[in-house]
Amino acid sequence: MALRLHRVDSRPVIQLEQVTKTYPKASRPSLDNVSVSIEKGEFVFFIGPSGSGKSTIIKLLLHEVSPNKGRVIVNSKDVTSMRSWKRPHFRRSIGCVFQDFRLLPNRTAYENVAFALEVIGKTKAVARRVVPEVLELVGLGGKEHRYPHELSGGEQQRVAVARAFVNRPLILLADEPTGNLDPDTSIEIMRLLDRINRTGTTVVMVTHDSNIVNQMRRRVVEIESGRIVRDQARGVYG
């Protein structure tokens, strides 16, 4: 009882409860009985070698895959039991950034961000008001009408961050966002994610970029072979 009260008070925005995920045909689980709790406004790194299961966490949080055992609770909703038709609405509270940016090549920076708004039913008027603002925030003021191929890798990732953040999500998931960027550009992207975190958005970042983890000095959860081997409040990379 006391434990439960404690939970309610601290309001974790993400909670994994004894989660096991084994992919079909896999010999061993990607995540093996993992429990993690992330509070609102936290900045958390998930680190570990390739294939350790850290990307599976992102997929679970997006409800892209379901766990075999355990519960995934995001924003006090049990994702495990969520019906698939509720997933679109649920995803609107989560922003997501990937290593490969995933921008639409035939749309400008402005259009890429506006697209994310328009397909969830926001009007063009809303987009006209919000998009320049968020592009300014990520430091792309003046480059709204460039196409992705006219932007550098770092700038493209900024567009991706703008798209993920334009809807003011509660959570920003970043799956190796600096994987394709040089160290200097990576640090700029990290500054941007830090700024977004300071607005109250919870940031969960999967990475194996030790430099960045060491510089940021944020909470580090290390995963190895599907198990949490370290969970440190102001950690460094291994």
Binding site: H89, R92, V119
Partner: peptide
């Protein structure tokens, strides 16, 4: 690509 982005940002299935 469009479909992937739409799914990611939570466009409804019918849309």
């Amino acid at each position: 690509r469009e479909v992937a982005v739409m799914k990611l940002v939570g466009a409804s299935n019918w849309f």
